[in-house]
Write a protein that binds this DNA or RNA. Structure first.
Lengths: 184, 184
DNA sequence: AACTTCATGTAACGAGTTACATGATTAT
DNA sequence: ATAATCATGTAACTCGTTACATGAAGTT
């Protein structure tokens, strides 16, 4: 999905500036499964406006550059519909972390454990973030994504915890005496 | 993670040709969370050999181009260890499908339902594939990845099925006035 | 006859990121 | 003081993909 289409979609949810669109791909719903940088958003916005798919209202500000608020036009909506109907590219899950795990025996044990701890914490934080976002965008689609994201993040964290012994070796508590993990 | 590192990793699992390495990123364990094309693998292999991180044995064949079997050198292993120790980039989950779901109301109902059906089938196929791969590579890391992948694929399929009503609207049979939001 | 598998390699092209340029305001 | 937020925009660069070139053997 090219950035132009993403911008069209973002603006279908309401008028926004380039800066705000970027935020939607950072913190907003989109942030969990898409990304876009200023370097791609601003040129896309310019191009879409030239093509009549957006209109732009400039709002003067003092100190800061003028705020350029973009709105989607009927042609823009039509274009979005069309692109949405085209076959979507496959979901892509890229993980350098998993690659490292395959070669965990190349690294010191403590480093591997830290990597796993951090990853689990990351998943939990992401799940947390998603649940706190409830109601940010009122659409069913957004709610769907929140639930989806939470499910995956929780499943990931649990699965990692349940199977970390495969890469770390058996837990100290399981190979000898009582578990030493008392910190809760 | 750049392709050079990926090749180094692939060859740490055993000698291989460029062609075979490509297969590992298509069908093998790596295929589920990484990708690389011939256009990046072959140049990477050449570069790594020049740098002394790999050695190359040419095996003549009739008809086909000579087979070039690469092996990792001690320096290559050292380089791999080093790169594995460097901070890994964040996991990236990119999904055009989810983007489309946010704007499902732009599409005909039947098209949306088909998209969802296909996606669920895809997740199930992927889970299936992962479970059939048991034992392909004997390492704990590979086993870990299989379990991880299966968990995620199954969770995805189930979650999609459980929440599809959010984007498709309530099921014909459930269309009543009762509070239908139970979350489970 | 046509397609897939095996097998390597290069050049053009694409799409987006990174870093830079600019600068006021507010928070730490 | 220092950093972050707000706000837009461009140019260079990176990295990789796509498509091409070549070609035999086996399969449908």
């Amino acid at each position: 999905m090219e950035v132009k289409t993403l911008c069209l979609g973002a603006l279908a949810l309401g008028d926004a500036t380039g800066y705000e669109i970027k935020k939607m791909f950072e913190d907003g719903v989109f942030g969990h499964f898409l990304e876009a940088s200023y370097g791609s958003i601003y040129p896309a916005l310019t191009k879409l406006t030239e093509d009549g798919l957006l209109t732009c209202t400039t709002q003067e500000q003092d100190g800061k550059p003028d705020k350029k608020i973009y709105s989607i036009t009927p042609e823009g909506s039509a274009a979005l519909s069309e692109r949405l109907g085209e076959p979507v590219s496959e979901d892509k899950f890229r993980s350098d972390f998993l690659f490292v795990m395959v070669f965990a025996h190349f690294l010191p044990k403590a480093a591997v454990s830290r990597l796993i701890d951090d990853k689990i914490a990351g998943f939990q934080a992401e799940a947390e973030k998603l649940s706190s976002e409830t109601g940010t965008i009122g659409t069913p689609g957004a709610e769907f994504i929140r639930r989806y994201g939470q499910t995956i993040m929780r499943a990931s964290a649990e699965c990692l915890e349940a199977n970390r012994h495969l890469i770390e070796g058996p837990l100290p508590g399981q190979e000898k005496k009582e578990p030493a993990e008392s910190l809760a």
